[in-house]
Design a protein around this nucleic acid. Structure first.
Lengths: 334, 334
DNA sequence: GCAGTTTACGAAAACGTTTTCGTAATTTTA
DNA sequence: TAAAATTACGAAAACGTTTTCGTAAACTGC
């Protein structure tokens, strides 16, 4: 590897001069700058980012912790985060937490040792963030896609309550009066808010909320499948099913398929998240979109702001969800 | 941040001693080691990986360049690579190349500047790797999921030819004699081999190969959709369709759906890759699996070997693909 | 009890940068 | 034209580690 010192030696100048030529400093003559830049080119010099980080006390690396990269929702977010971060001069160090709060803390510490300038956390969503606080206190951190309410943290999320309320109202507008909510027994605030949105909209519409919970399992698709399979055994008592997530809805779809329940003819089905699966024509799930690109950008921008000025107070940004109408819902025959 | 020097000062020893206590060196007394480790704990000392990298001339970071993280196939691979790398003491720096060969080279250089110990490349697949060679020559590199034949590179791939031959034979065994191949006009060797596998199996079976090409577009799903839509206009002349990738097949499925062509009743459909989409019940696509976890492990292991011993000759590993039977294919009525 | 060996530790260099400070050389001002 | 200001550069410290080398002190064998 050719270093700055090597270039300086060949050029017959001090390393300070080479450094200045590269950094665009004004403390250098125009002709020497050109000479040195040309020499760097010729010698194939690449600045060593590690050495630079050492003295600058900043790595220009953002750590990203995500529950599971292979989850389509999370991989979409990850992709946008990477691109937007890179456009701002940051690289991404990515770690899976594999839905494990212990591992989540472990990789967080690991990233701290790596001296990342900040962390974006797509949390497991255990509902308990107290044990993370001694870690988030050590480096600028932004949570994404998890509503942390009044916790002293930075986060970007959508208005889950409003989103689910809008979903409920949409079903109501199609004539549905018996709408079953398929909830997720997660402790996350996100899921609590979604449920509240449903209940609130039911109340406003004057219909009775009915809720079925899935136990929180590794795969919510599996959970939706089992829950729906059980439900179908006893006969269909509703005209629409509103699921806490697209994954759940897809599980339901599988069970419906196997039980000969036609969607949307016999049952309207709605999800939440708008993962890329949902748009596939054979699925074509009506759902509520989380604007992933906007969320990613907002999180990166928020983080960079806090990296530049660590004393900024905690903040959060709540983006509006968007109803995505597809073919899994239809109006009730009158 | 509390540093090793701080600990040394409090402990009243030199920094060498603290370093030795932490590294498990034998050149230190048992009681001092314990005393220092306890002190490190108390003071909340975290080793600075950047400083360590500086002197060790090794970062324990693997760079991963992927065409698009949000592509389900690639995100699955990414996830397994991250986990396996971390278990071996490496962290992952991830970059999107966004299907752009120029950007691919750009981020590669960027990773070189970051002093990554090695690079795993999930390439755009332009078919031309010569311009990459001056980059891959500078750091241990392993290509994944792209068959590079005799190129002087390291790679992990599947036997694409055999996989597609097996797919063809399976359709033949179901009684299909008119099998249309939906190819991808990509320049990648991978796609050439798949086509060859199809042609070879046709020849052995004594049936005529028929091929329709999609132009290489950003989204192969879109390409499949357009190609199939055109095909259906002129009437169905085949009993089975074999697609070069699952994405293509899903596009075909959409077109079939819209044209009232029932799969598998009217037309058997087969894909290749086994992306997670393919398993979703409403899709349930018969396909050829690329064993992603095994590929990821093989690539990481191959890379680490070459990091430890950079003088190792180039090598490659070809894994066997696996037929995944689902419901998108059926036997021809006799 | 003395030479030789081992053990346990400290001093200091090294990694490749950036940046501060100092200073000749040049330019500007009066 | 002398003093003051500016420009262009070099010397050296600093960042937080690891590791080599040197050396007292403790131990070994006879």
């Amino acid at each position: 590897m050719v270093t700055l010192k090597d270039v300086a030696k060949v050029a017959g100048v001090s390393y300070a001069t080479v450094s200045r030529a590269l950094s665009g400093s004004s403390e250098i003559g125009e002709q020497t700058r050109k000479r040195i830049l040309k020499l760097c080119e010729e010698m194939g010099y690449t600045p060593n980012a590690v050495a630079r980080s050492m003295v600058m006390k900043r790595t220009n690396i953002i750590g990203l912790i995500v529950a599971s990269i292979e989850n389509p929702f999370m991989s979409e977010l990850t992709s946008h985060i990477e691109i937007h971060a890179r456009h701002n001069g940051y690289n991404l160090m990515v770690c899976n937490s594999s839905y494990d709060t212990e591992l989540e803390k472990e990789v967080f510490s690991l990233l701290l040792g790596r001296q990342v300038d900040g962390v974006i956390l797509l949390p497991v969503g255990s509902g308990s963030y107290s044990s993370l606080q001694q870690l988030t206190a050590q480096v600028p951190t932004v949570f994404i896609s998890e509503n942390l309410q009044d916790l002293p943290e930075n986060y970007v999320a959508i208005d889950n309550r409003q989103g689910m309320a809008a979903a409920t109202e949409y079903l109501y507008s199609l004539g549905h009066r018996r709408i079953l909510y398929f909830g997720c027994r997660s402790n996350s605030v996100t899921h609590r808010l979604r449920l509240e949105g449903y209940e609130q909209a039911c109340k406003s519409a004057g219909i009775a909320p009915e809720v079925l919970y899935s136990p929180f399992e590794r795969s919510s698709q599996e959970a939706g499948y089992r829950l729906a399979a059980g439900y179908f055994q006893d006969g269909i008592r509703h005209t629409a099913m509103l699921c806490a997530s697209d994954s759940l809805a897809i599980g339901v779809m599988q069970a419906a398929y196997e039980n000969g329940v036609s969607i949307p003819n016999r049952l309207s089905l709605m999800g939440f998240d708008n993962i890329s699966f949902a748009a596939l024509p054979p699925i074509d799930l009506t759902t509520v979109d989380q604007p992933k690109e906007r969320m990613a950008k907002a999180a990166v921008d928020m983080l960079i702001e806090r990296i530049k000025n660590p004393d900024l107070p905690h903040t959060h940004e709540i983006l509006p969800p968007l109803l995505v109408l597809r073919s899994s819902c239809r109006a009730v025959r009158s």
